[in-house]
Structure formats: structure tokens, C-alpha cells
Amino acid sequence: MINTNDADATRFEFPLTEKSNRTGQRLLLGKADIKELPVIAKCVLALLEFLPNVLEPTISLEGSCILVYVAPSLSAPANMTANDAHATCIDAVDTLTMTATEIMHNSERAKPLPLNAVVTHKNASSLLRALASGDEGRQFSAKLKSFCAEIPLPILTPAEFTSADPETNQRKTGTFRVVGLIRGDQGGGHQFVLGGGLRVNLPGTSRWKWTEIHDVLDYEAHMVGTLIRESASDAWSISDDTHIQRQPPLL
């Protein structure tokens, strides 16, 4: 079991604010707890899937940072040591960096290829997608930190995942930060502005009425679900199961 009181313990850090610090009360969290932080939850769960053998289920809120500590997990080989787990994470960051480079180079092609055809490590691509979802509307960061190293994780933008996959052009599934709200008329026609300036038309159904959404910018709010459109020239709309998650401001 890792000692979470050790300032030199190897861990992944996810700041909740642009100016983060670790001062303040330490609070141990479970997977259910971090679901209240949708972008961070997406990143942490993707990280646990990427490194199942070297991450303890111990997730900690310390000040304005979410920390995931590194140690051999229950699924790790019996002879794995803490040093082995640390070295595995260093190698994993190298893999993430290489995969990020492959994705960026593909986005620069005149005709990008499907990502599965250009990335060497598919599971690294999934984690990079999750990290990219946190870069909407603010400067997002994440890092691997220990007594001997502080290594930033590569953070791509959603646009760099451009590929021949129709998911990019006509369908986007994920968690999108709401950064603006445009009011329509009494019959509806309201729009959300998402991170990166993406505008989404809202349906005229009861749960998207002005009285239900007018205060969305008073919270850290995210649209969770699928954005859809008929073609690249059409406006984005949402699927029926798309919804809003509101996170109260951190005290």
C-alpha cells in the first residue's frame, strides 16, 4: 500500500483549476465520487485502463488537485516492486508522447487516415482522447510526478484527432465543456457554445427550455452525449440521450 502522506510518492496529478496547489485537506475518493467531475473522471478512468497493473484504486483530492498514486495493483505480477511500477509509468509517458506525435502528423495530412491505421498503441490513443477533452475552454494540464521527475503528459486538442473516421465529421461523442449560451425566441432555438467555439442547436423539448438552462454558466457545466449533423455544412444538434452535468463551484 502506497503512503499517500509521502510528498515524494509517485503519482499522476490532474489540476482542477489553472492555478493549482496541493495545500488543503486530503480527501480519499472512489470512482463514484469523481463522476461529479466529468472531465477529470474521464481522464482518470482512461488512465486506470491504460495502466491497470501499476495504479492503486486510491484517488485523492488534495487542495485543487486530483492525485492517482502509483504502486503495484492487485492485478500486477507477484514480483512487481514499487520501483518497477515507477519505471512502467515513465515508459508509459514515452508511449503517450510517441502516440501524440503520430496523431498530430496524421492531422497534418491533406487526407488524414483513420487513427487505427496510424497509431502504434491503440490504448494510448484512448487516454489521449480523454486528456484532449479537458482542453476545452481553459488551459488543462496533467503530469507524472515523483521525487526524481516531473513529466507533463501530452495534451492534444480535439481538432488534432481529425481522421477519415465519420465520427469526426458527423458525430462526436464525449464530454464537452459549456462556455457560452445564446438565447433564441419563446419557441426555442437556444444554442450552447462549447469549448473551442463549437455551437450546438438545442431542441425545443421541455428539458431544454430557457427556464431549465438559463443558469448553466453559473456552474462548471458539461454537455455529455453525442453531437450529430447530416453533413459538414450543417449545424450541430444533439442526440436524445445527451444531457447536462452541473458541477457546483469548488469552495
Rank of each mutant, 00 (worst) to 15 (best):
F12M: 09
E49A: 13
P77N: 12
L113N: 04
L250V: 12
A41M: 10
L217Q: 14
R26H: 13
E102G: 00
R246A: 15
G204S: 06
P38F: 00
S73G: 12
C65V: 07
G184C: 02
T4S: 12
T120M: 01
L55T: 04
I103R: 06
I182R: 05
Q247I: 13
R246N: 14
I213R: 06
I213G: 00
P248F: 03
T211C: 05
A110M: 13
T81Y: 08
Q139A: 12
T81C: 08
P158S: 01
T168R: 03
Q186I: 11
E160A: 03
H105T: 05
G24M: 09
L113P: 06
I59V: 15
E49I: 11
P203W: 09
T58G: 01
A46G: 03
T120E: 03
L144M: 13
H121C: 11
E230S: 07
V224I: 02
A132M: 02
A82H: 14
G24V: 07
M98S: 13
E18S: 06
G63K: 09
M80T: 04
I213Y: 04
I244A: 00
L29W: 03
L127M: 10
T95C: 07
T23W: 10
L96I: 06
S20K: 15
T95M: 13
F50V: 13
H121E: 09
T173C: 08
A41G: 14
G196K: 05
N83M: 14
L198R: 01
S239P: 06
G187L: 07
A132Y: 03
L16G: 05
D135P: 09
T226W: 00
V224F: 00
E102T: 01
S60V: 13
S163G: 01
R177W: 06
A232L: 05
Q170K: 00
A46S: 13
A159I: 07
S163L: 03
D218R: 15
R109T: 03
G195Y: 06
L113K: 09
C89M: 10
S126E: 08
V70C: 11
S64W: 09
R109P: 13
S237F: 00
K35A: 12
T23N: 14
M80P: 04
T205Q: 07
L96Q: 02
R177V: 04
F12G: 01
A9E: 14
V200Y: 00
N83I: 15
E18V: 15
K31P: 10
D185Q: 11
A159K: 07
F161K: 04
G63T: 04
T81Q: 08
E108G: 10
A142S: 09
I182A: 09
V200N: 00
A76F: 05
T157R: 09
F147V: 11
V178P: 09
P152N: 02
D240E: 10
R229G: 01
A132K: 02
I34K: 10
H222E: 06
D33K: 02
T88I: 08
P72Q: 06
G30S: 12
L48V: 13
R183A: 15
A85G: 03
F147N: 11
V224K: 00
A32R: 10
H214Y: 12
T157D: 07
D234S: 03
P114R: 02
G188N: 01
H105L: 10
R26S: 15
T97N: 11
T10D: 05
E230K: 06
D84A: 10
L127Q: 06
I40R: 11
R207S: 14
S107V: 04
L51D: 05
M223E: 00
